[in-house]
Amino acid sequence: MSTFLIAFIISALLSLFIIRYATTHSLDHDLKGVQKFHARAVPRVGGVAIFMSVIATSAIATYRSPGQGYSLLILILCSSIAFFGGVIEDLTKRVSAKRRLLLTMLAAGAGYWLLDARIQRVDFVVTNFVLLTWVALPLTVVAVAGVANAVNIIDGFNGLAAVVTMFMLLSLAYVALQVNDTFVLVAAVAVAGAAAGFLVWNYPAGLIFLGDGGAYFLGFMLAELTVLLVMRNPSVSSWYALLLVIYPVFETLFSVYRRLFVRGRSPGMPDGIHLHSLIFRRIVVWAAGRSDDVRALNLRNSMTSPYLWLLSLLAVIPASLFWWHTPTLMGFCLLFVVTYVWLYVRIVRFRSPRWLFIRGRKR
C-alpha cells in the first residue's frame, strides 16, 4: 500500500507541475482530428509524470529491498525505449506509428534477453505446450508490442486508457500476491499508483493527457509484467494473460479487420468508429445533449470512459478470480468476444440497448 501511495503522490505533483508549466510544443492543439474529442489545447505529456514517478518509487522500493533493484532497473531501461519514442512523437509529431511500433518491439526484445520475459508455454485443458526459442522470441516481441500499441489505441477519452490499465495492473498485483511474486507485485503497484496520480488531473477535467509516451509506457509495463507473472509462476494459466488484456487487444484486432476487410483501407489508417467513439457519438451525445461549448464537450468526454471501464471489468474480474483455471478462462475469453461484437453491431446499426442510456430520452 505504501508503494501505491508514494507513486500516487509523486505522479499527482509532477502532473500538476506539467500542467502549470507546459510549453507550446507539449500541447495538443489538434481539435478537429477524427479521434479528437477535446475543446482546448491540453498538455499531452502526462506520461512523463508517470514515468518519473515509477522511477522514483522504484528507487525507494530498492532502498527498502535491495534484492529487487537490478530487475526494476532493467525493466525501466527496457520500457524507456518505448516511452521515449512516444514522447518524441508527442513533442515533435515526427515519429511515425511504424517507428513507434518498431521501438516497442525492440524494447520487448531487450526484455526477452535481459529479464527473461518470454512466452514459452501455452496452456490447454489437458496439456501444456512448451515453445521453442525460434517461436517464443517473435511471439513475445509481437505480443508485448501489440499490447502496448493496443493501449495507445484505446487512449481516446479522459481516464479511459489509464483506468483500464490500472484495473489490469491491480489484478496482476493481486495474483502476484497469491503466488508470492514480490517483484511483479511491487512493480505493478508502483505503475498503478502512478497512473492513479495522473488521473487526479486527467479525469474528469481533462487538464492533461497521457500522450503516446504515457500510453506506450503503460502498455509496455502491463505486457511485460503479465508475461513475467505467467512465465515465472507455472500455477498461473497463460489464459489469464489473454483474458486480462483482451479488451484493448481485441479492440485492436477488430479495428484491423474492420479497416482492412470491411472498409478496404490500410489497417494503420485512423478512423472514428472504434467502440469508444461510437459510444461517444451515439449514446453519450444523445444523453448529454449536442452543445459544442467547452463544458458540454468535456462532460460528454468524461461520461464515455465509464462504459468502457465496465466492459474491461467483464474480463479483468473473472481473470482475477480464476487465474489458475484454464477451461474457465477460455470460456470467459469467448464470452467477452461475443459480448463485444454483439454490442458493437447493435450500436453501429442504431439499435443500442436501452439500458445503455443514462437519461430517459428514447431513440
Rank of each mutant, 00 (worst) to 15 (best):
S71F: 14
A7V: 08
V122Y: 02
V189L: 09
A143G: 03
A288N: 08
L335M: 14
G33I: 02
V348F: 02
T133A: 14
V147F: 00
P353H: 00
R44H: 06
F217E: 00
L132C: 01
A143R: 09
A195Y: 03
A161W: 13
L72A: 12
L225P: 03
R118C: 01
F280T: 01
Y257S: 09
G264N: 12
S80I: 12
D292S: 14
Y174K: 01
A107T: 07
V135T: 06
S80Y: 13
L160I: 11
V122G: 01
G289W: 05
A223H: 10
T328A: 11
M221A: 12
G211Q: 02
S291E: 13
G264L: 13
S58I: 09
I208N: 07
L275G: 01
R282L: 05
L228H: 04
V184N: 01
P306S: 10
L278N: 02
V256N: 03
G33W: 12
F322Q: 02
R259W: 01
Y216T: 00
M166V: 09
A49C: 05
Q178T: 05
M1Y: 07
N128K: 15
A215D: 01
V130E: 14
G272L: 08
F322H: 11
G156N: 13
T57L: 08
T165D: 02
V54T: 14
A148N: 10
V151F: 15
T165M: 03
F167R: 02
F8E: 07
L75Y: 06
T304Y: 00
I283L: 09
V142F: 13
G213I: 13
L91W: 14
G268L: 15
I9G: 04
W201D: 01
G272H: 14
A173E: 02
P270L: 12
K36Q: 11
R263T: 11
G289K: 12
L210Q: 02
L5R: 09
